[in-house]
Design a protein around this nucleic acid. Sequence first.
DNA 1: GTCTATAAGATGATAGAC
DNA 2: GTCTATCATCTTATAGAC
Lengths: 216, 216
Amino acid sequence: MSDTRSRLLTAAADALRDDGVAGISARVIAARAGVNQALVFYHFGTVSELVAAATRDAVDARLELYRNDFAQVESLPELLHLGRALHEREREVGNVRMMAQLMAGAQQDAALATAGRYAMQAWSDEVEAVLRRVLAPSPIAVIADPAGLARAVSASFIGIQLYDGVDAAGAGAGLDALEQLGVLVEVVDELGPIARRALLAKVRKQRRRAKSDSAV
Amino acid sequence: MSDTRSRLLTAAADALRDDGVAGISARVIAARAGVNQALVFYHFGTVSELVAAATRDAVDARLELYRNDFAQVESLPELLHLGRALHEREREVGNVRMMAQLMAGAQQDAALATAGRYAMQAWSDEVEAVLRRVLAPSPIAVIADPAGLARAVSASFIGIQLYDGVDAAGAGAGLDALEQLGVLVEVVDELGPIARRALLAKVRKQRRRAKSDSAV
DNA sequence: GTCTATAAGATGATAGAC
DNA sequence: GTCTATCATCTTATAGAC
């Protein structure tokens, strides 16, 4: 890949992270890359397409970096611990911050929307694989949908990152609370047979209720 | 309050919701309000200040509208149900969509940051009050920090709303998963005394671990 | 592939008429 | 308070020299 092309890609990702969707432009990116502004359009057609390609690459690179860590997770507490560590590291590197800006821009821009969908999919799939493995031996597997849960977790990360940008203390308290709640899942994991049966009965009841709700 | 002022305020909130932070400008807002562009600066000084004031008002109005619903919640399943209904209604009205754009812009703009902090605080406080009431009789009260949990929930809502904008099916699956997970909490609520003691022991263990982690 | 130059328009913000 | 007119500056995007 040409030097200029890759310089523009990393510059675009950096600019999105630091200046936000509202502050991004061909000139800002080009200045960061140390190249001429016209090259944005020569190589990528539009600013949106450049940003979309840049975030795509950045997400791929980041996930590659974490793949090993994800693979080594064997239990839910370990997963929660990894989530916390990931948040801390990402706060410095700014990848989630970049994704949050991508998602915000994606609401009104078709090219960014495609990139945003890709990014969420990539992260969610990774988390889903871990959840599927970790929850398999647990009775929680009966009620938890790994795919949905992974998507909820990924989306929540974006929200918490945005919150972190305006109130770090508040966002920290939120993460702490979620981590503490993980204990709850552990406890259910070690439930006796009677309680386990009660759990299953409740799940079935809730399922029926949800079904009749959607029918109305 | 003058007619023009209030027209600008609602127009600013609408523009933020529909056009996003990246698409907002004094001219766009003024056109929506049907007034001259110069009045933005006469009444509010800067565009950011106008947007900040507009979101502040919108959040106050929305919370006022939901106050009754919040007050009537008596159990966790009811709270989860309200959360789902709120998400559906807000998807149409677009208040959370507006807040998501506010939070994205708040990362780089001081005036928007203040407004974002206020908005998150207002929603979190409301949710916190309900959580405190609902969780009080439950053994979960021991592990759950209502303030932190409320903040996590509010932030997650923002993230899921952004996700909803690029992949409605994925966001829906995420919400479904969270709702199903609520069953877990219900089960713990009806735990026997032995299991309850096991829960408390685990919590204490986790607390110690967290403390030693932060010491390192 | 990279540059300069430039078009055609949008932006925040202000001065001054009314 | 509201308007017109205007500023300097920014934007995307293209044409054409090198």
